[in-house]
Design a protein around this nucleic acid. Structure first.
Lengths: 231, 231
DNA sequence: TTCATAGTTCGATCATAACCGAAGCATAGG
DNA sequence: CCTATGCTTCGGTTATGATCGAACTATGAA
């Protein structure tokens, strides 16, 4: 009787708190070992192993053997997209996890969303780029303008032509769960994030599963000079 | 320790097969009564009532009382988007539901995806519109061209300016799980689907939770004349 | 070789939640 | 009023699956 993809199968994989914690940790875009993920989820390695096997056969993550470690990563950005979508629904319904930790404000200010910048600063950046006409939003379409291309070349040494990718857009709006507005994804979003870390304006928090991005004093100033809100 | 939206909460709601069936039925865009949804999921009304209450407090569906009936609908197209995303992941991993029913081929040919056309014909239509330069896809951006505006006005009496909506794009690519390619969503996609039914080219299958779209003989011919593949 | 660490498999326990029968409200229509 | 229908609440049963202890395999280091 029933046909079509078995969405309950996939959703139930994400529906377990331990697995959801693991997947959220992997949203950082980094590959993590089985034990790191176990710690992240607050469970023993045995239990984690069982969960990871399920996630793997479910096609959500893929392993990479390296010595005696097994590194796991998300199988693609489409998985990340669905996870972010679920986060959006949860945030909209006001279903936050109760234990709000000390890192929460930092997470809301700046975090990595798979491979690009999200949070308050991420939203600010996209806003500013639109205001400065570096990005044009016509209807739903987002595009880097000529001025935008010159801007990223001059200020950040990013070649716009190098951003073109067969399977991924240059500019893409990504809904930010903490701000409930859009930030910039796509190859441009990824390139900018990479540039910020290269320039040491910002660095990912070193703790394994963390998505927090810490801006240096100088980096924050430079960032504000380019994308500041106080015009 | 943990912070952020509770994605496990939402995902586990979708993760139960009975609830997933209900949600999939609601993907048709129609509002369905509690008993229709119970039948759709193959469970008794008591059980369904409990599930529906959970989905409601989870913010995925909303009720509307009408006499002694309670009609339920999805709370928004963002919910539909996440459900389609999950379907995409399931299809990619090859996790189809085993019981492939007789309606399956019809479902793959043409179905409604919330409020627009999906399936083989939906993908064909978008392809054809691009080929005819009615829609231009620059990088990731999709836009209705001038020629496209004239075309929909002349052939289908759709006013392009009336499609502009503050919170919804005109053209939007939506991943099709059965074809693994994009079809057309957005206000234009919805308007086209509406036009097809008004013109009696196509009609939704009358059985409650069905997403199947049946084209009439004449409708299929007219559709092919506009968006046919055999050029 | 021996030891330590990373990860898995097995078995048993235990809690959650899906399910239905029966009874209880509410609305519509006589 | 009474009756039928749509839906919900309550209680008890049952099954699934998350969890961990213990034992096992594999890789690397000494």
């Amino acid at each position: 009787m029933k046909s079509g993809p078995d969405i309950a199968m996939v959703a139930s994989l994400v529906g377990d708190p331990a697995r959801a914690n693991m997947l959220t940790a992997l949203l950082s875009g980094r590959a993590l070992t089985a034990s790191e993920l176990a710690q992240e989820a607050g469970i023993t390695p045995q239990t984690a192993s069982s969960h990871l096997a399920k996630l793997e056969t479910g096609g959500l993550i893929e392993p990479e053997k390296q010595g005696r470690h097994r590194y796991y990563r998300l199988t693609g950005s489409d998985v990340a997209g669905v996870l972010e979508g679920l986060a959006g629904l949860a945030a909209r319904a006001g279903h936050m996890r109760v234990r709000t930790g000390p890192k929460d404000p930092a997470l809301r200010r700046a975090r990595v969303c798979y491979d690009h910048l999200a949070g308050d600063l991420g939203v600010q950046m996209l806003d500013s780029m639109k205001r400065q006409r570096l990005i044009r939003q016509s209807k739903e379409a987002m595009e880097l303008t000529g001025e935008g291309k010159r801007f990223i070349a001059k200020a950040l040494q990013i070649d716009a032509d190098a951003l073109i990718h067969p399977r991924r857009p240059v500019c893409k709006a990504c809904l930010d769960w903490s701000e409930r507005r859009h930030h910039l994804a796509g190859t441009l979003g990824a390139a900018l994030m990479e540039r910020f870390t290269e320039l040491k304006w910002a660095a990912r928090d070193p703790t394994p599963g963390s998505r927090v991005v810490n801006f240096s004093r100088n980096g924050e100033k430079r960032f504000a000079a380019l994308f500041g809100t106080g015009e």
